[in-house]
């Protein structure tokens, strides 16, 4: 039993790290742009498929796929921003309409992945040597440990970026007070485009990690990650990147522990219940800081 719990803890940490990244990119998007990216899970899964194509067609190992995904998705995000967002701002209720538009993006992206890769589940047959490592009394696959390491590196880099660099500080300022930052002479359009691109890049990288950590993915997996992203974002407080990181890890742990103690079906419901419960009883998230809107 203890081994099972320890297993749950370690895997919870690994999965939670991934959830944290999924959440933090979505929360950045919401925070800066006030758009709700319903297609976030599809962005993420598209990253998994990119890693899959890179490996199976070009023999590029997943570790190398991480920076490639970052660059590709950053560029794609930058372009997508200019196609989608400026026009959206002109509608009556941009926040709600963004939800609807990204609903469309989500359907289109899933359909596109389906056309390209068909409905079968895919796996990357890449193996690290050794296949698994011993962590205390349990064995964990090397791929998962590598993913965890990358997650930690990316999180630290992101935190340093947000808190130590000028553009990062501008992003945080934009989350807290979008009006003021325009008066300060920051080009909000460029900053938003950058935020969108950054979020897309993070989503792409997360997708590569998912290909490492989870046994398989298919075009329909996107919807699951969207829900997970929502849970993490709400739990961490809408628009709060630090909260999202924390909430992601917490939720990963909770979910993995739930699979240890509860039947599979109940474990799935747990996520939804956490989501609804948080919105009702602690709408500002676990940290209790609601970023000013």
């Amino acid at each position: 039993m203890e081994l099972l719990i320890l297993n749950g803890l370690v895997n919870g940490l690994i999965v939670g790290g991934i959830y944290a990244l999924v959440g933090v990119s979505l929360t950045l998007l919401y925070g800066v742009l006030r758009v709700v990216n319903f297609a976030h899970g599809e962005f993420v899964i598209a990253g998994s498929f990119l890693a899959f194509v890179l490996f199976s067609s070009f023999g590029v190992p997943p570790l190398l796929a991480v920076p490639i995904a970052a660059v590709v998705f950053f560029a794609a995000g930058w372009g997508l921003y200019y196609v989608l967002i400026p026009r959206l701002a002109r509608s009556d209720d941009p926040e709600l309409m963004s939800f609807l538009m990204f609903y469309g993006v989500s359907i289109a992206a899933a359909a596109l992945l389906l056309l390209l890769f068909e409905a079968d589940s895919r796996t990357i047959d890449y193996t690290f040597t050794p296949v698994s490592m011993q962590v205390g009394p349990i064995y964990v696959s090397t791929a998962r440990l590598v993913a965890l390491a990358i997650t930690i590196v990316v999180s630290i880099a992101l935190a340093l970026f947000l808190f130590k660099t000028l553009p990062g500080k501008a992003l945080r300022a934009a989350i807290m007070n979008p009006e003021a930052i325009q008066i300060m002479g920051v080009d909000i359009v460029r900053l938003s485009a950058f935020a969108f691109a950054l979020a897309a890049a993070l989503a792409g990288v997360t997708g590569v990690l998912i290909a490492l950590v989870f046994p398989a993915f298919n075009p329909f997996s996107g919807a699951e990650y969207t829900i997970i992203a929502f849970i993490v974002v709400v739990l961490g407080g809408l628009g709060n990147p630090v909260g999202a990181l924390l909430a992601g890890v917490l939720f990963g742990l909770a979910e993995q522990m739930a699979t240890v103690f509860l039947p599979q079906a109940m474990a799935q419901i747990v996520g939804f219940v956490i989501l609804v419960g948080t919105i009702f009883f602690r709408p500002s998230g676990i940290l209790g800081v609601r970023f000013k809107r």
Binding site: L84, R87, M101, G104, A108, A111, L112
Partner: peptide
């Protein structure tokens, strides 16, 4: 038949962007 979903998605995006009302 295969493009059905894709077009539904694209139609949504276009609607929101160009005909939100």
């Amino acid at each position: 038949p295969l493009l059905n979903l894709l077009i539904l998605g694209l139609a949504t995006i276009i609607l929101v962007l160009f005909l939100p009302r």
